[in-house]
Amino acid sequence: MTSIGTGYDLSNSVFSPDGRNFQVEYAVKAVENGGTAIGIRCKDGVVLALEKLVTSKLLKPGANKRIATVDRHMGVVSAGLLPDGRHFVSRARDEAAQWRRFYKGPIPTSALANRMGSYVQAYTLYSSVRPFGVTAIVAGWDSEAELPVDGQVGAGPAVGAGGKKEGGKQGGPFLYMIEPSGLYWGYYGAATGKGRQAAKTELEKLDLGSGELTLEQGVKEAARIIYVAHEDSKDKDLEVEMTWVSALDGPTKGRHEEVPKELREEAERLAKKALEGDDDEEEGAERMQE
């Protein structure tokens, strides 16, 4: 960082001569210290998973949930400064609620990502504020059904003007990641936090682009990846938090919910087993197959 110490990193919203905003880059550093968070966009839903390091024995296991529900069909997980993450969630909830008030329907995941991207970006523009110290992953299921307007009564015309279009495809699983700069992309698989590099490597192996991975498999892969990413800081205790959102005919009926305890524990058990297997074979070429 050539410009470090030359004063260009002291104020937010100030560019260095070589076109960098140091405050934003420092915010990214804050994210890189956070527990690993990942999201996997599967064929029929999205999984969010989070590595929670147990910082104290005085904390109740399973308490202090960190993956938040933003709207019925959408969830957010973030890595970095926890209070910044909560503020992010709070804003996201407001945006989702405001969208409903205005459009009388659920906010599409892309629209929420867009609005939150803009919001986060605004915190890079002023010297009176600092950028968000979080990278957030947004998972949502946009309903594939012909949605009624909130509070709508009646079904509308069956044919003719305003009638139904046959075979129109809409909705589906969506996954976005929003960084401290306000940059956001849609992903097949997203990872952030301390173990992001290892997690990304694992995510790439999954061939998510082909859209073959099912949600159930996704849950198991997500748990495994969290464990893989955790390898480097193995001395610390770990807790895995997982949520998912599925299609209307799936296990969550289009809602963002916590992965049931039994399924999560099963996924964690398999993840541990897979890791032990890896150790035996030196090179972890063998991937867990369900």
Partner: peptide, 11 residues
């Protein structure tokens, strides 16, 4: 539902 599961410390 924001806190439906977050408030229940252990499901």
């Amino acid at each position: 539902n924001y806190s439906a599961y977050a408030s229940s410390a252990d499901s």
